[in-house]
Simulated assay, not measured.
Amino acid sequence: MRVLVVAAPLAGHLAPLLPFAHALWDSGHEVLVASGGEATPAGGAGALPFIDVARNLRIGRLAARSLLAHPLAARAELTGRGGDAGVRSLFGPLNEELTDAVVTVAEQWRPDVVLHEPLAAAGALAAARHDVPAVLHESGLFDGVAAARVLLESHPLQRARARHGVRGVPGPAMVLTITPQSLAGARDALAVRPGRAGAGDPLPGWLKTPSVRPRVLVLRGGGPMRGDLQASALRVVAGADDLDCELVLARPPGRLVRRAGPGVRSVGRVAHSELLPACAAVLHGGSSGHVLAALAAGVPQLALPGPGDRRYNAELVDARGAGIGGAVTEEALRRLVHDGEIAAAAREVRSEIAAMPSPQARVDIVAALA
């Protein structure tokens, strides 16, 4: 079986699909990953065959154009309140530009199945154009079917459909979800255990030994808030006399390392699956990858609401009780480290994720579609 894997040209969109792509490859199926930009092989495709379908696509240019054409939707998206309009404003034009290349790759490579993430609806269009089944593999915590439908009904994708003679795009033949049911409710999808990030630097020896004070891991934020989350954590801890914890900053900017006082340490590119079990709690910028990594480790988390789906992700964590969705405050840090109910809920979701079927366990079901 040949499977074309399609993701938007962003590392966070391709990474959740890679465990399943590798499971297909390891089972003897042919796999071709179609993406680009920061999601090129250096972003994690590994040994899988890869083709750049976004060579001439510039995310920054599209974002600027979206801001000018849809200023209200774009500004709402920056606060995590963009909804369907936010998805359409950026990912509609992005997918229109991807469509020609993805359709051409499908025509030349002749896949038996197209597996795509929700915000790479160009994959669904290409599957319809060549009359092969499409499998939608969710890449985050939001409802992937609804997001893909929003894109396919957008004006840019309608233009792309007309250009390639595709009157309608059927729903996916199968949907795979990586979201634990207790987090976002039941979905009409097959559950697949979210995968872990690849190897990184070795875990430092000092993190392998118990700490007298609770260790709080602080990951870097994404995009414009890259160093802001860690700076906020430093300010809160420095201003609290009785907040007795040790901060562990992951890949902090040099300026923060120079300002850090006692009780603050840093680590390099250590895989989150190694770092998280060594810590009592984690602070992060709200990405679905960070949320799922913390849940898989059973570690209480503070998810900072932010642009795109980050506000939604933070709200899910808060509603489940496995962490806090909100700003970094002294009260939030104290709850995160000492609230037994949060810790118990995080462990419950860890058990739930461990019980989800592995990607390998779902390969034969997808192969049956071919």
Rank of each mutant, 00 (worst) to 15 (best):
A271I: 09
A303V: 07
Q108E: 13
G340K: 10
D244F: 07
V31E: 05
P262A: 15
P156I: 07
G222E: 09
G221Y: 00
L57N: 09
P19T: 08
L243S: 07
A191E: 13
L152V: 03
S139L: 04
V113D: 12
I365W: 05
L219D: 00
G92D: 04
E153V: 08
D131C: 10
A367N: 12
S66H: 05
L247W: 05
G308T: 08
H130V: 05
A314C: 15
R75D: 07
T104E: 14
R259H: 06
A106N: 05
E341I: 14
A361K: 09
E38G: 10
V267Q: 04
I324L: 15
L136F: 02
L292I: 02
L249R: 02
L94R: 02
L48E: 06
D26L: 12
K208R: 15
R311S: 13
T329I: 09
L229Y: 04
F91E: 04
R320Q: 14
I178T: 00
L243K: 04
A127D: 03
E330I: 05
A238S: 14
L78M: 15
D188C: 06
M225E: 11
L48G: 04
T179V: 11
I59Q: 09
P156E: 08
V218W: 03
D244L: 11
R167Q: 13
R81L: 13
A69Q: 12
T40R: 07
R311I: 06
D339T: 06
Q181H: 11
A147W: 00
A322R: 00
R362N: 10
A231H: 05
A319E: 15
R65C: 08
P180E: 05
A120W: 00
E97R: 09
S139E: 06
S139C: 10
A146P: 05
L67S: 06
A281Y: 02
Q360P: 02
D339A: 11
A186N: 12
G268N: 13
S66V: 05
T104M: 13
A69L: 14
